[in-house]
Design a protein around this nucleic acid. Structure first.
Lengths: 233, 233
DNA sequence: ACCTGAACACCGTTCAAGT
DNA sequence: ACCTGAACACCGTTCAAGT
């Protein structure tokens, strides 16, 4: 037993970048964005801050790594091309990200922060790739790939951010229906001269289903792509 | 002179919530997101932290107020309905936000943060209203208003966040062409098995124009809206 | 090469005290 | 009602020292 110590893979003791990122994700999931501190991290990993800084350059690098790890996992489900149609495949990828944000609420803010600080980091090509395959399968001519994929990616990230706080009501304690109702009433109470549209739409907002609405937006963009690039007959 | 002191409006000395928000925006513009601290703020306003806390509940409320102020200003240009067509009007609103983020780079992160923390705060109805008027003018039936406006708003916010760092190269010191070129080469160097699409599209990415690409995405969504809701003959 | 942990500079926020 | 400013708790990061 314990013969050569050649591959101590399973040792929980070894401090690696991976283990640090893992612990960071757990802390973020458990205690939210404010929960990730070097104090909490050293406590959980039973080390000092110096040990963490040996593997990771800064807190923001750690956050980037956590974000990348969660996004990669979200995009890895669904073996690429598994869905029936390109349309469905794009929807599946989008919903994968949507659900990841639902499970890891900190991801919305962090994705936005990371993408606006470093828009061309590792996360962007990951998402582009998953969406892009669907775009290509849709029959869009090569010249339109970048624009079509960009539009979808931007929509997905924007929508995901906006819908993040709507989650399954986890933590907030307030019922989602009640919450939307109060927002809807707030919109109805806006100045009629300044906000005619918001008031008119308040009722639709009240009853809307995040997921369905999210997919309806995808459908709208796909319809636009098809209209601009009609499939060959 | 100085007869009754009834309306000391112009006195620079009076500390008001407005003046605090104004100073916060200036600090953010000058020194970036990290530049807004209560120390810097008290220095600039010549007071103590307690004075600021009398007018503002917390730093995050102050950030929200700064965001709202800048967004309101960005949407206020263009007297609503001034553009020729609904299509152009939506484009103008979108570009207004796009440019605001270009001028205030911190706005991208802050918008994303605020919208994912409090998606139904004052900023949302503002943007919805501006976009929504265009949607209505487009002839979309009332039942489709919420979905169409949501799709546009989400796209705009997502794209704006992603493009924020591309600004006029202000601060970075690196030429934009050079920068995109290096990113493009990085994408071309990705694993061919894992990233076929990203590699194929790297060249289009290299030469792309943010603004034009942004508007092309708007066009795509508008085409989708028109396809789903064909205008009455 | 990897880890320890005390120390540093700085932060948001509070609050008793003033006017 | 509005402002002052010292004090508090906490944070990310560093670094001389250990193994």
């Amino acid at each position: 037993m314990a013969p050569r110590t050649r591959k101590p893979e399973r040792r929980a003791e070894a401090l690696t970048r991976e283990r640090i990122v893992e612990a960071a994700v757990e802390l973020l999931d458990t205690s939210g964005e404010g929960g990730l501190t070097f104090r909490a991290l050293t406590g959980r990993l039973a080390t000092g801050p110096g040990a963490i800084y040996w593997h990771v350059a800064s807190k923001s690098e750690l956050l980037d790594a956590a974000t990348d790890a969660v996004v990669a996992a979200a995009l890895a489900t669904g073996p690429a091309g598994s869905a029936g149609s390109p349309h469905k495949e794009i929807g599946a990828v989008a919903l994968g990200l949507f659900d990841a944000i639902d499970e890891h609420p900190w991801l919305a803010t962090q994705l936005a922060t990371q993408l606006s600080r470093n828009p061309w980091g590792p996360v962007t090509p990951r998402i582009f790739e998953s969406i892009g395959r669907g775009v290509r399968a849709l029959g869009v001519p090569e010249g339109g790939w970048f624009t079509a994929a960009s539009a979808l990616v931007h929509y997905i990230l924007g929508a995901a951010g906006q819908n993040a706080a709507n989650g399954r009501g986890a933590g907030s304690g307030v019922d989602r229906g009640e919450f939307l109702d109060s927002v809807s009433r707030a919109w109805e109470a806006l100045d009629p001269g300044d906000y005619p549209f918001a008031r008119a739409v308040a009722d639709q907002m009240r009853g809307h289903d995040d997921r369905a609405e999210f997919l309806a937006g995808i459908d709208l963009i796909l319809a636009g792509i098809t209209a601009v690039h009609p499939p060959a007959p």
